[in-house]
Design a protein around this nucleic acid. Structure first.
Lengths: 169, 169
DNA sequence: TCGTATAGTTAAGTATCCTTAACTAATTAG
DNA sequence: CTAATTAGTTAAGGATACTTAACTATACGA
């Protein structure tokens, strides 16, 4: 087995165990919040992208434009997101999280953080350092593969304490 | 920032980028296959656990027993899963993937594998080795945290070429 | 300026999926 | 042996979320 093959294999092993856990949390969280999985997806999409239009939501969920419009309407009614006119193009709407919507996203992230914290307890300090270095590389590589994101303002980027640790090779 | 904090942080960074990608693929895949997200979840659950009962499905999806029963019925009709009587307890049913259901799961896994393969192209051999070691540790730790799985038979365990690489410390 | 394309909404109809309530059948406990 | 529990199903009714078709309003290109 070559290194790239082994690499892909271990990444797949990890993704399997990680996805199973995350999907379960995701479903559970959606139910607990009284939201559909689609609605939760929208919240996370807006959390990541900061702002987007109605048709972007349709693309995200793989549904038609009217379906997206109705979903947005429901979520506006629920006080999760707000819909304002795009000043540059008055046909378009800009969707954003409300304070309440942001709160819900934060709670979900916090729940996942607790799971991850559990992982630290079983690992030695050396193992943790190894994993930190490895995942930093992986995160950078994965982000480079991502399609561009129209982040209005990169919030809390260059946050102190998040800088990478150099690996010696 | 302590090592555990930094560890949790980088794990969270990774989970964010990974989840975004995986959720998108998951939604896309479900739509393309003409399945609901719930149905796709069931397929993956059965792929992992090999066999389970109707109420396990209800627990997985966070719905009532009748809802699970109806979902199972629909999926049986679609030829995705089959429902046989549990020989040990004739009240209970054992659910399993059909050949067709297995095929669909395989296709989805293959799609994700291709994404992961892309990641290898941008990384050096040293980086890949580092990540392999790190993720192996992480997979083991995460599996230990998982609730027990009633796998009828551990398929393809101890497959050659999947053994861990020892890390020197 | 006129025609076309784009962003989004509204309306009508349908399918899916959920709930509770009531049921059957098998198991287990006293 | 009877009573209670457990696994699952069926039925009726309701909510959600999807579709296509038809629409409004803005932007843009010739």
């Amino acid at each position: 087995m070559t290194t790239p093959d082994r690499f892909t294999q271990v990444l797949q092993d990890w993704s399997e165990v990680f996805m199973r856990r995350s999907m379960h949390d995701f479903i559970q969280f959606s139910k607990d919040s009284g939201l559909s999985m689609g609605q939760t997806s929208v919240l996370f999409h807006l959390h990541h992208g900061s702002s987007c239009g109605v048709s972007d939501i349709g693309e995200l969920l793989g549904v038609t434009n009217p379906a997206a419009s109705q979903m947005v309407h429901r979520m506006v009614t629920l006080g999760l997101i707000e819909r304002t006119e795009d000043p540059d193009d008055r046909r378009a709407k800009q969707l954003q999280l409300t304070a309440n919507g942001r709160l819900i996203v934060k709670e979900s992230i916090e729940a996942r953080r607790r799971w991850m914290e559990q992982l630290t307890y079983t690992l030695t300090s050396e193992e943790q350092t190894l994993i930190i270095n490895a995942l930093n590389i992986l995160v950078d590589a994965a982000r480079d593969l991502e399609p561009r994101v129209n982040k209005v303002e990169s919030r809390e980027q260059n946050e102190p304490g998040k800088e990478h640790i150099a690996i010696e090779n």
